[in-house]
Design a protein around this nucleic acid. Structure first.
Length: 594
DNA sequence: GCCGTTTTCGGCCCGACTGTTTTCAGTCG
């Protein structure tokens, strides 16, 4: 099978780690840079190579002669000698060991040399028996931290980040959809509810030639679909393979269930398999009270002696809810957190819709750690139908990104003026706004002087250091930043990275209160592993009347599409268009900002 | 190993924290 961009990137990242172990200078950064560039590429590297050969590979920024050859070898053979040799020298599960906070290549090497630790399991055993603490350069504290890191990975590691696995899942769904036997197909479960992470994936299908009812025998079409499903190239394990229900594990480690449902039950199955469980339990209780029975096959009227029942509805999901006396509910809010009561009163909020955003307010360009130019982002935004974007490169304290100081920021502002002028002469409607992702320093002051901040259209503040301050101090720090009259938005307010790093310790209610008082916007960072604020914090903001912004946090134009994941979270937090400032016109938005 | 409106060779980002030390290596962003 064709090697994917992320598979190539993973190997390049690992090479960087191995070189780091050997104290090789500069090369690790070179491999990391190339890996990141490939990971963020819009096109398939294999395709790039097929069309333009080595030359085309070398045109990828950060990829030179040597790495291009290695990528070529990977595309052609699926293997890489250089990588295998490095791996032979230090045969450790680098990918997973490096996921542990605080553990880098040097420590991994030492642990391997001294204790023959190769895997996370080895490491855990050694830490638990106190062997790590006695090691030179390590101590009791390191041992504790390692155990904590392992625990964190274990408790959060077996869920998949929805935005990152959806491409894999959609590939499968797209392929099934093309079968002549398939009439309709949907992803259900927590993925349909747009949860930030999913444990597994459920897929429902109706065959063209669908069986009459759930008790009828499966049709040939239905059997063919199930057979096709378990024989896909990505399948590494088949747990179950029936005529209408199958379960497999994919190469990426995710378990996927497929159910081929009769047409007359499709709506009921959608409702049932979408959940959430709590939502379904509450709905079924209501059904019982009204003399119905609800299951995955339909809504049934129960006749007195309970041995007779007649199917009322089942093909259409909306009809089921309506028969039960309530409005259809958007899947994102089906968590039994008040949505059912409001649906019964026909008072559900009108959630913000996919496609409602008029702008993107967090974009990193190649002035710092982004991959594309201001102009390239502008072109992409025009393609997406946006009306405005805000350029928000990092500031000087974040040295590793080449953060901008006051002088460079002013220079970038005049560059934006120029690009805006070009857009106007070419009759393009897009407006590029001047902004910055300004570092919030330890004491809550900003990394850029106020005189310069004043000149920007919109200022975003963000924390990138001192993640471990005690709660009151961290909260005070953010509050001070919000009180700055130039700071309009707080970017990724809690700093978590899903499956990797917990949020820093803040009093979220205090933060929301301050946002309200100071008129500061809180951001919903749409990057799939951030989604910060998360759904229930969004809901708190909506209830408190604090306004929000949904931003892609793009570091490459391909990331701008992530805005949709931000909308999904906003919907999970019950946000309407009124709550999201970049769903508004430019004038209205600028008017309400500080 | 990559890159070049300062360079085709000689630079590559840097400050702070943590945990280990008693001056520093490793890690992080």
């Amino acid at each position: 099978m064709k090697i994917t961009n992320s598979e190539i990137a993973k190997i390049l990242y690992e090479i960087a780690g191995y070189l780091e172990m050997q104290n090789v200078a500069f090369k690790p950064r070179a491999y990391e840079k190339a890996a990141a560039a490939i990971e963020e590429l819009d096109n398939d590297v294999s395709e790039v190579y097929k069309e333009g050969g080595l030359k085309a590979l070398e045109e990828i920024p950060g990829v030179g002669v040597s790495i291009a050859e290695k990528v070529e070898e990977l595309i052609k053979t699926g293997r890489l000698k250089y990588y295998n040799e490095l791996k032979k020298k230090t045969p450790v599960d680098l990918e997973n060991l490096l996921r542990i906070e605080g553990l880098g290549p040097k420590s991994v090497k030492k642990l391997y040399k001294k204790l023959k630790i190769k895997t996370v399991e080895d490491l855990e055993k050694a830490a638990k028996t106190g062997k790590i603490g006695k090691l030179e350069g390590f101590g009791k504290k390191s041992e504790e931290n390692i155990l904590k890191g392992i625990k964190f990975i274990k408790t959060s590691g077996n869920r998949f980040i929805l935005g990152f696995v959806i491409p894999d899942l959609e590939k499968i769904v797209g392929r099934l959809k093309k079968l002549k036997e398939v009439e309709r197909i949907d992803i259900v479960g927590s993925a349909r509810r747009e949860k930030e992470t999913i444990g597994d994936c459920d897929i429902l299908v109706i065959a063209k030639n669908s069986r009459e009812s759930s008790s009828a025998k499966a049709t040939e079409d239905e059997i063919k679909i199930s057979d096709f499903f378990v024989n896909m190239p990505e399948v590494v394990k088949v747990f179950a393979h029936g005529e209408t229900k199958s379960a497999i594990r994919l190469k990426n480690g995710m378990d996927v269930d497929l159910r081929v449902v009769p047409r007359e039950s499709y709506g009921a199955a959608l409702q049932y398999f979408t959940g959430s469980k709590d939502h379904n339990i509450a709905i079924r209780e209501i059904a019982i009270k009204k003399g119905y029975k609800l299951n995955e096959y339909g809504l049934f009227r129960v006749i007195r002696d309970k041995r007779h029942e007649t199917r009322i509805v089942g093909e259409d999901e909306k009809e089921i809810y309506e028969k039960l006396g309530m409005d259809w509910m958007p899947t994102e809010i089906r968590e039994n957190q008040g949505e059912i009561e409001l649906a019964q009163e026909h008072k559900l909020p009108k959630l913000i819709n996919y496609g409602d955003l008029k702008g993107d307010l967090q974009i990193q360009t190649n002035w710092t750690d982004g991959a594309n130019t201001i102009e390239e982002y502008a072109e992409e935004a025009i393609k997406m139908g946006l009306e405005y974007i805000l350029i928000t490169d990092h500031t000087k304290r974040l040295a590793m990104t080449g953060g901008l100081d006051e002088k460079k920021l002013l220079k970038q502002m005049s560059e934006i003026d120029k690009v805006n002028k070009r857009l106007t002469t070419n009759n393009k409607r897009l407006k590029i706004l001047k902004g910055s992702e300004v570092d919030i320093l330890k004491d809550g002051t900003m990394d850029i002087a106020d005189e310069v901040l004043e000149k920007l259209d919109i200022v975003g503040g963000a924390i990138h250091s001192h993640f471990n301050l005690p709660r009151h101090e961290q909260t005070k720090r953010l509050i001070r930043a919000m009180e700055n009259k130039n700071v309009d938005i707080i970017f990724h307010p809690t700093g978590r990275i899903i499956n990797r790093r917990p949020a820093y310790d803040i009093d979220i209610d205090e933060i929301i209160k301050t946002a309200k008082r100071t008129g500061t916007i809180l951001e919903i960072d749409a990057f799939p592993d951030r989604l910060d604020l998360k759904d229930n914090y969004i809901r708190k903001c909506v209830e408190a009347g604090v306004k929000l912004a949904i931003d892609s946090d793009a570091h490459a134009i391909a990331h701008m599409g992530y805005l949709e994941w931000g909308i999904a979270q906003a919907r999970r937090g019950w946000a309407t268009r009124e709550d999201i400032i970049n769903a508004w016109s430019l004038d209205k938005m600028l008017e309400m900002l500080k």
